[in-house]
């Protein structure tokens, strides 16, 4: 009975993995071979395709984390907390990658690894905040208390996001908001953003599945050995 869904699931996973690998390969191929070299910065500008893609994924995952946190508070189902934790972890990873790629880009564009710019500052604040949320969650044993605390903190973190998005527009910092780009650059950016979104969505799904299985295993262990 179990073999059919298992094998089906295996085929589905194989197909999804193959599609993701192909999409990422296409994005990287376009990034290095199809997109034209930028006139002033040269090849270093290609970091932008990665930077914008991971920044977008980080921002979307943060909003999703807040959304799942809110859903947990309303419905009190642990599955929403698993989604919130998975999206939060992936968001933290994406913000880390955004800061690293942004730092490389800044070094070539502005001659410094870091500059006092509201959007950079806000991204780093978000990174620190996620680190704090994970540490807080790690200190709580009761699953529902952990979920509740994590959900509220996720909502507070999401409140920080409008400040990040609006910061450059308020202060006209040195961060480029929407630079003029060639059509091929636009297409490469779009493909990279879509590929990375699909990849990180898959990461979120797998992590959520892992969390759910861990929870189920802990539940079974508790039933087998209640003392």
């Amino acid at each position: 009975m179990r073999l059919v869904p298992r094998s089906l699931s295996f085929v589905v996973h194989l197909c999804v993995t193959a599609i993701l690998v192909a999409a990422l390969a296409l994005a990287l191929g376009m990034l290095f071979l199809y997109a034209p070299t930028e006139a002033t910065m040269g090849d270093v500008q290609r970091i932008l395709y990665l930077h914008v893609s991971v920044a977008w994924c980080g921002l979307a995952a943060s909003v999703a984390m807040g959304g799942y946190g809110l859903l947990y508070l309303v419905r009190r189902q642990l599955s929403y907390d698993h989604w919130a934790q998975a999206t939060g972890e992936v968001s933290w990873l994406c913000v880390t990658l955004t800061l690293i790629t942004g730092s490389f880009w800044a070094h070539e564009a502005w001659g410094v690894w870091w500059t006092w710019e509201p959007r950079l500052m806000s991204s780093f604040v978000l990174w620190l905040l996620y680190a704090g949320i994970f540490l807080t969650r790690g200190g709580i044993d009761d699953v529902h208390q952990r979920a509740r605390t994590g959900s509220i903190l996720a909502i507070l973190a999401v409140v920080d996001i409008p400040l990040i998005v609006m910061a450059t527009r308020w202060f006209r910092g040195v961060h480029p908001v929407a630079p003029r780009m060639d059509d091929r650059m636009h297409l490469t950016l779009l493909v990279a953003a879509l590929s990375f979104t699909a990849f990180f969505a898959c990461c979120i799904y797998q992590r959520r599945r892992q969390l759910e299985l861990t929870e189920r295993l802990a539940d079974l262990s508790a039933r087998l050995d209640p003392f």
């Binding site: 806000s122 604040v125 620190l128 905040l129 704090g132 540490l135 807080t136 920080d160 400040l163």
Partner: peptide
């Protein structure tokens, strides 16, 4: 934990 969570939130 208070300082760890409070200061990132009140940075702006």
């Amino acid at each position: 934990l208070l300082a760890l969570l409070l200061f990132p939130l009140i940075t702006p």
